[in-house]
Design a protein around this nucleic acid. Structure first.
Ligand SMILES: [Mn+2]
Ligand SMILES: [Mn+2]
Ligand SMILES: [Zn+2]
Ligand SMILES: [Zn+2]
Lengths: 140, 140
DNA sequence: TACTGATTTGTAATCATTATAATATTGTAA
DNA sequence: TTACAATATTATAATGATTACAAATCAGTA
């Protein structure tokens, strides 16, 4: 899997110190941080960084496909993870953590079994598909 | 499938005129309305209704499992649909519509094929699993 | 009818995100 | 190196959805 940094460099996008600090924090990060968590971490090494920079950098990384934004929390903040090997996301409604489920399965019932077998209890599933609808494809 | 109204009545929850108007609008509704869309519709028949009532009623209906809230739009408003037969949701990034895909499939690749075969183009999938994690189950 | 608890309403507060404009930095060409 | 234009960063304001709150209203019961 290509690193976030490699993807950004390939695109010829300038690696400013702020972007580099954000990328370093995200690379291999499995905690699904929010914008504020990224901001807090980077600020400790780079005290003048602005939250607006974190927002714009995360949007850039999303557009490049280097990270993905998750809307798994129904309200409140979005969170992010590096786009690595296919895996699933489980949100604990008690502790509010987003937990990676590293399986290469595509069948919902199999995935639920895999999550259950890790000791979690699955109560609900939402699958969202994104793209362009037939009407919009035709009227382009 | 049980109607929303039946679920509410079974729970012995009082059916106020406002709640009834909202339930009537949601029953069988396939448009995935937002809170504001529900509010605008109900207001035409019930001009004094408050948006706060729509929020609290939708929360009630969600807790009863009569409707579900979708966070398919990564920012902006949540939307709702009656919890009916299992189906999937496709968001068009151009026209911003949430489209029901009525299939009884559980395998992601099969679902994508089904969506494609309806003339839509699938570009991305997010599956979110909700429940209680092993840590929180143990420490209860 | 009088009382009690639940519901609704209008408004204010909160919070994540986006927009904006001034400032700073970067890369490039002379 | 210097000058310049393009890009990025910053601080702050604006937006917009949701939640909190308290007063007013309603429903059910004694
Ligand atoms: Mn992940
Ligand atoms: Mn639906
Ligand atoms: Zn937990
Ligand atoms: Zn469309």
């Amino acid at each position: 899997m290509k690193s976030i940094r490699a993807i950004v460099e390939e695109e010829g996008i300038s690696l400013t110190p702020q972007r580099l600090a954000i990328i370093d924090f995200m690379e291999g990060n499995r905690t699904h941080p929010t914008v504020d968590e990224i901001y807090q971490d980077v600020k400790s090494m780079y005290p003048t960084i602005s939250k607006a920079t974190v927002y714009s950098t995360m949007q850039l990384l999303c557009e490049l496909g280097a990270v993905q934004e998750l809307s798994i929390r129904k309200r409140g903040e979005a969170c992010f993870d590096p786009r690595e090997n296919k895996h699933q996301h489980f949100l604990c409604r008690k502790c509010n953590r987003v937990i990676d489920i590293s399986v290469d399965l595509y069948d919902e019932e199999d995935i639920i079994k895999a999550i259950d077998s890790r000791g979690h209890r699955v109560e609900d599933v939402h699958s969202y598909f994104y793209g362009v609808c037939s009407d919009c494809i035709q009227s382009k």
